[in-house]
């Protein structure tokens, strides 16, 4: 039988012993106060974004294009539903998996009646979800600096709805677009003061691989397509 903590004390003991002699700091961060860099400085070094909402949107649009995400601006929930209907008929979808949420609930009655809906409420059958043609989720945030969609296990239908079906549709509001990862983490920390969801994931474009001759192929395991429907 194995102790459930293993060699905890022995390893911590070796670590403490090893650290008795301090290591020199070879690359002191220039603009750090008191020797420890603060995360507030990251913004000065990372790729610039711009302060105005238009600049943020422009960058997000540009990066989405590079990443081969499809960003579609929708004036209303009705328009978003129409976009989903046209994607569904073009893709020959039979089943759409989704979860409950403010935006999805508003969309649901407007979706084409021909689509079978698989709602993930308290659980699901893995095979059934795997066989779906698309997954519709909300998200927590969009990140301008990286072109990412931030989903969590709490607000995006659990851990795999955003990654198992071959087409992932995200419905979001422009107000969810933050400048950069620093702001994203600040926003998540404020939102989940009482406990983070068990998964936070920054999705940056559809699933991709370059493992064969470093040639880009989309849809390695996750979605081949990522569509972001952006409401005002």
């Amino acid at each position: 039988m194995i102790s459930h903590q293993g060699d905890r004390e022995a390893i911590l003991g070796r670590v403490k012993e090893a650290l008795r002699e301090p290591a020199p700091l070879k690359h002191p961060a220039e603009r750090s106060a008191g020797g420890e860099p603060t995360t507030a400085h990251f913004r000065e070094w990372l790729p610039p974004v711009g302060a105005a909402i238009e600049e943020r949107l422009d960058l997000f649009r540009k990066l989405s294009e590079t990443l081969r995400s499809e960003l579609i601006a929708c004036a209303s929930v009705r328009e978003a539903a129409a976009e989903i209907a046209s994607l569904a008929s073009a893709g020959g979808w039979k089943t759409l998996a989704l979860h409950q949420g403010e935006l999805v609930d508003a969309l649901l009655p407007l979706l084409p009646a021909s689509l079978t809906i698989l709602p993930l409420q308290s659980g699901y059958d893995k095979d059934q979800l795997e066989a779906c043609d698309a997954g519709l989720t909300e998200c927590d945030l969009l990140v301008a600096q990286t072109g990412s969609v931030c989903v969590t296990s709490k607000n995006s239908g659990g851990r795999v709805l955003s990654v198992l079906p071959p087409h992932h549709i995200v419905i979001a509001r422009t107000g969810q677009l933050v400048t950069d990862l620093t702001e994203a983490y600040q926003s998540l920390a404020a939102k989940y003061r009482d406990g983070y969801p068990s998964m936070i994931s920054f999705i940056t474009g559809p699933s991709r691989t370059g493992d064969i001759e470093r040639i880009l192929v989309l849809g390695a395991h996750g979605p081949k397509r990522l569509t972001i429907l952006l409401l005002p």
């Binding site: 296990s153 068990s198 998964m199 920054f202 940056t204 991709r208």
Partner: peptide
């Protein structure tokens, strides 16, 4: 493509 942070197993209320 995916940067994911995992803080624990399935939590109460998660599906």
């Amino acid at each position: 493509g995916y940067n994911s942070m995992y803080g624990g197993p399935r939590q109460t209320g998660e599906i």
